[in-house]
Design a binder for these strands. Structure first.
Lengths: 168, 168
DNA sequence: TGCTGATTGACAGTATACTGACGATCTAGG
DNA sequence: CCTAGATCGTCAGTATACTGTCAATCAGCA
């Protein structure tokens, strides 16, 4: 009769979760390297893009649009404000809410950093053949979408957001 | 003549780095849910496996075997020690080094948690068709391997480690 | 109108991550 | 043998993440 399977490092190396973690670390590392001239993290970059696309958004809705944790987002916003890339204004019709807008500095650095970010994104996929890059991205996008509800902060894209603003 | 491309949320949603981040968060979330009875994080689990596979390993070599940051690993080891899952003994021939071993508790919880971890790994891939799961994992493993040197702590697997211990 | 429940931003506590620095220690070379 | 350089563990500082909680505020309903 067979004995219990031995516990080996393959239980780590071949595990999807481990590969996702490794790849995320590599991606951040490459991003920071390509963008080191700009003093912006991947999270701060995504937040700037979202505020640029949705001027006057509030923190809670911002967290839904980029699927980042709301607690974490508080400090991200503080740092962006400290760097003078965004400003927060109280909403006149709801005293709980603070509206987010890009400053001129913020809009400017966003324009400047885009090429560097694109270089970073290209670099992290570069080791694969073009066809394989596309396959991997397609499957990963599917998997993330189908697992959307499994994360603490599910992604709520723009159109869904507008609906939320009125109905729920 | 064409104007500059507008900055939209696609610059975020379609970016590999963003998808890697999302997927990592989802993977951790599912892991914690399946393993909540065990009070172990993914990182702590990987460290336990590696210490089980390499009894008497030191912290620096451990970080190379699982490709985790050495600074971070210090606190991970402390927490595992506080939970009485591992113990640290000073090495007789090198006063800088502390050797890591599983305790009986550590070995026991490792045996018990394996099924839960396997459920978690299966669940995060479950939304894809079996063939697509395999394709995604194969490509991701390739990409991580080919980008190995791009991360702060490149993976040094077991055989490489033994060589390092003697030559470098 | 006044209470209930939901929402918003903020905070405390824990756990990864990375950068850079430090003292203690070891090793190799002169 | 003794010093220069490498290595080990540790720490301080910053930045994500998640859980849970809280006061202030708002919205809907009796």
């Amino acid at each position: 009769m067979p004995s219990k399977p031995a516990i080996t490092m393959d239980a780590v190396y071949a595990a999807p979760g481990y590969l996702f973690r490794r790849m995320q670390q590599i991606a951040v590392s490459i991003f920071m390297e390509e963008c080191k001239a700009f003093d912006l993290t991947p999270v701060q970059y995504a937040a700037l893009i979202a505020i640029h696309t949705h001027p006057g958004i509030d923190a809670t809705r911002l967290s839904a649009v980029i699927a980042f944790d709301r607690s974490t987002l508080g400090s991200v916003i503080e740092r962006l404000q400290a760097k003078d890339y965004i400003e927060r204004k109280p909403a006149p019709e709801d005293k709980r809410i603070k509206l987010l807008h890009l400053t001129k500095s913020g809009a400017a650095i966003l324009r400047e950093i885009v090429p560097a970010v694109e270089r970073a994104q290209a670099r992290m996929m570069e080791p694969l053949k073009p066809a394989d890059r596309k396959t991997l991205m397609t499957l990963l996008a599917q998997l993330v979408d189908l697992n959307n509800e499994a994360s603490r902060v599910p992604l709520r894209a723009e159109d869904v957001l507008e609906h939320l603003g009125k109905a729920g």
